[in-house]
Design a protein around this nucleic acid. Sequence first.
DNA 1: TAAAACTGTTGCATATATCGAATGCTGTTC
DNA 2: GAACAGCATTCGATATATGCAACAGTTTTA
Lengths: 256, 256
Amino acid sequence: MVESPASPSKAPAIARAAAILRLLGKSDTPLGVQAIARELGLVPSTCLYVLRALAEEELIAFDPDTKRYALDAGVLTLARQWLRRNQFPDLIQPVLDRIAGDFGVTMLGVQIVGLDHIIAVAVSRSGNNFQLSTQVGSRFPALISATGRCIAAFGDYPEAELARRFRTLRWDEPPSFEAWREQVAETRAQGFAVDDGNYIAGVAVLAAPVWKAPGKPSHALVAIGIGSAIKKRGLEALGDALVAAGRTVSAQMSGG
Amino acid sequence: MVESPASPSKAPAIARAAAILRLLGKSDTPLGVQAIARELGLVPSTCLYVLRALAEEELIAFDPDTKRYALDAGVLTLARQWLRRNQFPDLIQPVLDRIAGDFGVTMLGVQIVGLDHIIAVAVSRSGNNFQLSTQVGSRFPALISATGRCIAAFGDYPEAELARRFRTLRWDEPPSFEAWREQVAETRAQGFAVDDGNYIAGVAVLAAPVWKAPGKPSHALVAIGIGSAIKKRGLEALGDALVAAGRTVSAQMSGG
DNA sequence: TAAAACTGTTGCATATATCGAATGCTGTTC
DNA sequence: GAACAGCATTCGATATATGCAACAGTTTTA
């Protein structure tokens, strides 16, 4: 269950700690030592030491009565510090709010973590649109949906790697790799990507890239809405708005 | 700079990792291996291994060009998971909003982490009140201000421990320990605590405890406002509102 | 009520993560 | 342009964190 990296890490305790944090995050209820050790394939005693160390750092909370462990508020402090140092959420929040309002869509600002995945770092929900719910901190595979086409179009990744990753994706209505490649090419041409019901049936997703520095895009602006509603109001207009906003934010991020 | 625990941990890598995360959080700019090692008193090579492990887990980001490390968005994911599993912020947010609006104060929901410190986990700023700024994830010493009197009043801690901790606090207008003890007694009697300009001159802070389970309070509701403005509208009324809200939330948390 | 099955926890031998010095690299100084 | 100074990184010896087996509670089962 715990992944083994190609070159064995010189600090395995940290990989274990991270796995424990993620497991506790996933779990809806606090877990005991044995349950954690079993789930992650760890030796109970080692697991106990890691848990104690994490509790010492207040990243996890220990309930002496039930002997159960859960995430603690310390992770919040780290997140706040990350947010404080990152201009991207602050920069794009007003942009997201404006586009969400203008077009009646849910807007996301996402950070691109290589070809592996993307993380939502800012969200704006339009009022009239009922919850196409995504929260800050949510993770998605990098190549999925419109954002995926964006990353493929502007990331300059080797074809073979893209194909390999593409096969692992889960869509409501999977496009063929050939169709997808064509859409990626189109994305490169028009500056924004469209996912028309592939990822989630009936839901349209648009995405435009943002660059912190020349090279691969670092972030993306994403619009999500009911497919029919978006198309009625003009898919092009929304796409152009995303591209324009992306350009502005890119300039601000590389300038400042 | 890195604190040495009483009983030496069996997983020191984790303490180092946590120290690194906090250091990177504090820093306004990405740091190199040597800078981190020097600041934390670590051996550079060990520091490097820890950094690589953290980067592998995407808790920190590594810039290959500058060879610098910074917090990564992975910490956001953990924070989101913590928030998802914790009912307290959700429960109190409407309560905070209401009281903030009614009394024109800034409201905080805080989690109590023993006698060591408290962490703000929910915030509501009243519109007309200019920024008495505190953000979610902020940490404060446990015994400071009104919340401190609350913790002392309802926590049943040994007097010596309280006195020891009390001496380390930094106030704008420090009360004497005797005066403080008296205020703690009063807090116990009336159910809420008041800090009238001690912590921050001219600023009044009120706090009422919240219990998840019988024993020591687990959280607190905190009101912050300009002293004169609060006193004009009635300090008692605000205090009673806090106590009532605290009782309601306590019931919901122990019931559900 | 007994005992079985589970839990969290400890002591000890050993594989191994850490340390400190040595290396190669990059940018700076004279 | 050469020597320096600082950096990140590697490498081997050793202190040590880990894995295993045994222990002691606690709840569930017979």
